[in-house]
Computed example of a mutant assay.
Amino acid sequence: THSGASLYKAFAPEHARRLLNKLEFVYTPKHGSWLNMAECEFSVLSRQCLARRLPDSVSVAKEITAWARSRNQNAASVDWRFSTEDARIKLKRLYPNPLN
């Protein structure tokens, strides 16, 4: 769903309008840093927690909960290695220099 029109395709007009009144659409770029952080965190999860056989979904849920608790207690963060300066060089068309 990218706009209110999608709700009108899926629901009766009255219901779509009620839903639309409760929503606020916020543009989130596909290549935003939040997505990069989520991908990094899933990579760490898979390497540190899920890189082994677990007998059932209950065990998987318990392991992920314990892993997430540990990550949060240790205040794990993302170590960005791609600076704004690098971005302006490598992605020049996406990051124009405001001084030019």
Rank of each mutant, 00 (worst) to 15 (best):
E14H: 01
A76F: 08
A68K: 08
T28G: 07
A68T: 13
L23W: 02
H15V: 14
L45H: 11
R71S: 11
R47F: 03
G32W: 06
P13I: 11
L50T: 03
Y27H: 04
T84R: 13
L54T: 05
A87C: 14
K92T: 14
Q73W: 03
S83V: 05
S57F: 08
K92N: 11
A12Q: 14
H31K: 05
K92D: 10
K90H: 12
W67A: 01
C49F: 01
H2F: 01
L19I: 12
G32N: 15
T1L: 09
L54R: 03
L91S: 07
A75V: 12
I64V: 15
A61I: 06
Q48D: 11
L94T: 06
A66Y: 00
Q48W: 02
N97D: 14
P55H: 03
K90N: 09
C49M: 01
R69K: 10
Y95R: 05
H31D: 14
E85T: 10
V78K: 00
D79R: 05
K9A: 10
K90R: 13
R52A: 11
E24K: 06
E63C: 11
L45C: 10
E24N: 03
L50F: 04
L19D: 06
A38E: 03
L35T: 11
R71D: 04
A51P: 00
S77H: 13
R17N: 14
E14K: 03
K22Q: 15
A38W: 00
D56H: 07
E41Q: 08
Y27R: 01
Y95N: 04
I89K: 12
R52M: 06
Q48R: 15
E14P: 01
A10L: 12
A10W: 09
V58F: 06
D86S: 08
L50G: 02
H15N: 08
L45R: 09
N21R: 11
N72M: 09
Y8E: 05
W67D: 02
R88D: 00
G4N: 11
L99K: 04
T65N: 07
A51M: 05
Y8P: 06
S59W: 02
I64A: 11
D56P: 10
T1D: 09
A61P: 05
E14Q: 06
L50H: 01
G4S: 09
Y95M: 03
L45D: 07
E39G: 05
R88S: 08
S57R: 14
L54Q: 10
A87Y: 02
R53G: 08
L94H: 11
V26M: 09
H31T: 12
F11R: 04
T28R: 10
S6D: 15
Q73E: 15
S6T: 08
L91I: 00
Y8N: 08
L99C: 06
R88H: 13
D56Q: 05
R69S: 14
